[in-house]
Design a binder for these strands. Structure first.
Length: 200
DNA sequence: ACTCCGATTGTT
DNA sequence: ACAATCGGAGTA
């Protein structure tokens, strides 16, 4: 999961939804793990539910959920085996194609995709994309220029109450499209020992 | 059936 | 600092 979050940086996400093309370069992600991660939607006491079921499935599919009754958030599922549960939230992208389309959808010329809700609005992503195979149109993740390690920052996650110190947020330092959220130190030692093995 | 509240955003 | 806005999850 963690490795997926790192590797998504620099890759492109192309939306041809609603008949128009918008492409973003992914610059900010966050990993959410399985039941052991209190901040994850997979941590529900009731186990698998209608909402989180995709987090328990195979990798490479869209898990889209609504937040605060008004915004959509896009995740890439990351499970590589039946034992691995989780997904990676796409938190920010730099729009590299279809800027005018994204601006119209956003109703403004700036801050087009520097946040998970904004990104979904710019790419026209909504709940109907849940379960979509992200290797196929109309919403697909494509290879991009790899981001070297010295441009990558790993920090604590944003906007959650539990396990905030887990360093599972990744961003490309200084790149447009990174959200304004404060960069706070994620503490690797705060991760439970079994999970640390997933860190590179 | 009922309450609580969130992996956010935009404005004051 | 705070309102908007609603369905999922937990409780009964």
């Amino acid at each position: 999961m963690d490795a997926l979050a790192r590797d998504l940086l620099g890759q492109r996400i192309r939306s041809t939804l609603a008949g128009e093309t918008v492409v973003g370069r992914i610059v900010e992600t966050e990993a959410y793990l399985g039941p052991e991660d209190a901040a994850s939607h997979a941590a529900t006491r009731t186990g698998v539910t209608d909402r989180n079921r995709l987090m328990f499935g195979p990798a490479g599919f869209a898990y889209v959920y609504r937040i605060y009754g008004m915004h959509w958030c896009l995740n890439v599922t990351g499970g590589r085996s039946v034992d691995e549960v989780g997904a990676v939230l796409i938190r920010g992208a730099e729009i590299v194609e279809g800027r005018p389309v994204a601006a119209r959808r956003r109703g403004r010329e700036d801050h087009l995709a520097d946040g998970p809700g904004k990104l979904c609005q710019a790419l026209a992503v909504d709940g109907s994309l849940g379960g979509h195979d992200l290797t196929t149109a109309p919403l697909e993740i494509l290879p991009g220029d790899p981001v070297p390690d010295d441009r990558v920052r790993r920090t604590g996650r944003v906007g959650i109450r539990s396990a905030v110190s887990w360093p599972l947020r990744y961003l490309v330092a200084g790149s447009p499209g990174v959200s304004r959220a404060a960069v706070h130190a994620g503490d690797v030692s705060a991760l439970p020992e079994p999970l640390r093995t997933d860190l590179r």
